[in-house]
Design a protein around this nucleic acid. Structure first.
Lengths: 231, 231
DNA sequence: TATATATAGAGAAAAGTTTCTCGATTCGCT
DNA sequence: AGCGAATCGAGAAACTTTTCTCTATATATA
């Protein structure tokens, strides 16, 4: 029974599945607030333009069970996905770098609903230290390791400029932080036991701009054809 | 010769490759500014913890060519990836929703270097309309379609609250926008010819929090074992 | 109560992606 | 000039993910 093993983290879950789960989750939350009680993979697949079997396999990874002819309880699905992604327990996090992006993240309401609570921000700029951003206190960067250790913080978010990122990462590791969400465009060097997730907004832009460029190219070609011939 | 076809957009490129290309790009830009002229897939693979053959196949999609025993010209690679991703031409974009996230995106310096120039922001809040955010003027939302059409804008970015997202998307479609980068947690309904890329910061959180949850679980179990037995 | 139908779930097949293997090429060194 | 080492590029093999097919089951309806 692979599902049970999966939901306990004993097997590895496909990356693509992991990327789709939050999409299902959002969709299901919308259903829930619309008052829908049960849902089938067929319907989910139609609404999200995904293959129903794929949806079923994805959801099975969370250990949820459905009924033939009926589908799944929406509330079951929501709960199982939350558990699976660790969104049912709040992770306290430290954020380093109280610039534009850092401030936006500090004020991002969705995080709280998805198991992430940024409890403090850190910066080197004396003008920022001591101030409040979206209700979170900005503290001196040097105090990060000690505080992280005392408060048992497991998650760090890096939104400092690239040049400072490695040093901040070192601070975080020193403070016993286990997972780093890195928004700086550099590859961090950390012990292999630390989970690093690199996030660059422009990474996501790649797919979009590639598709758009291709699309515009095709249009230009069509235009030229239409101009040259008389069709 | 599949590479040539690829670089002209005639074949489909694997999603995973598309996600890795920006990573290579960033790495290569760093090399470039460090003065490195040539690079091999072996070295790239080592530095980025990827299989060298995979790196080679990924890069081949851009149509770049290397020399045995030497590798690739760093500058060739950078140029080819830029062309492939459409980063060599600047795309002018409109952004709707001048809140926290919108402001952060307006001030995000990396976009400009990657083919994206946000030329104006739109909001419904009269307090924001008319002001400048990071040098970009905030305009009334209603003027978006007309302006988009007149300026030939192809790309729209949505950072409004979920409830307003669909309406904004409709405005964008009406204004002839071809691709939408959607940061609101809703599935937009748009004509199938429009490219939509949904971006949710917490989507990326999924992988990280799942791994962290798993990791902490394992640690707890280990702890319990250690406690129960005397090992 | 029997029947038709929608759907979960499991396993097989197909498609896609990554990794391996090998030959060809280039360069530096002797 | 010839030799050895490094690397590209192409094709094959292994692996992963997606899609298809089938069976069992729950529900609604006649």
């Amino acid at each position: 029974m692979e599902n049970a093993a999966d939901s306990k983290g004993l097997t590895t879950i496909p990356e693509p599945t992991l990327r789709r789960l939050p999409i299902y989750y959002q969709y299901l939350r919308n259903l829930e607030s619309a008052g829908k009680k049960v849902i089938s993979c067929t319907t989910i697949g139609n609404d999200l333009s995904l293959d129903p079997t794929q949806v079923r396999k994805d959801l099975a990874h969370t250990g949820v069970e459905g009924k033939p002819k009926v589908g799944y309880m929406v509330s079951d699905l929501v709960r199982k996905i939350e558990e699976f992604l660790g969104w049912n327990k709040i992770n306290a996090a430290f954020l380093a770098g109280a610039g534009n992006l850092g401030s936006a993240l500090l004020g991002y309401p969705q995080f709280r609903e998805h198991g992430l609570s940024i409890v403090a921000a850190f910066d080197r700029d004396p003008a920022k230290v001591g101030s409040l951003i979206h209700g979170k206190r900005v503290l001196p960067l040097e105090t990060l390791p000690g505080l992280a250790r005392r408060m048992g913080i497991r998650l760090g978010i890096i939104t400092v400029p690239p040049a400072a990122a490695q040093e901040v990462a070192d601070f975080m590791v020193q403070g016993g932080i286990q997972a780093i969400w890195n928004f700086a465009p550099v590859m961090l060097k950390v012990p292999s036991s630390i989970v690093v997730r690199n996030e660059e907004l422009y990474y996501s832009l790649a797919a979009l701009s590639h598709t758009l460029a291709k699309k515009l190219n095709v249009e230009i070609k069509k235009g030229e054809e239409g101009y040259a011939s008389s069709n």
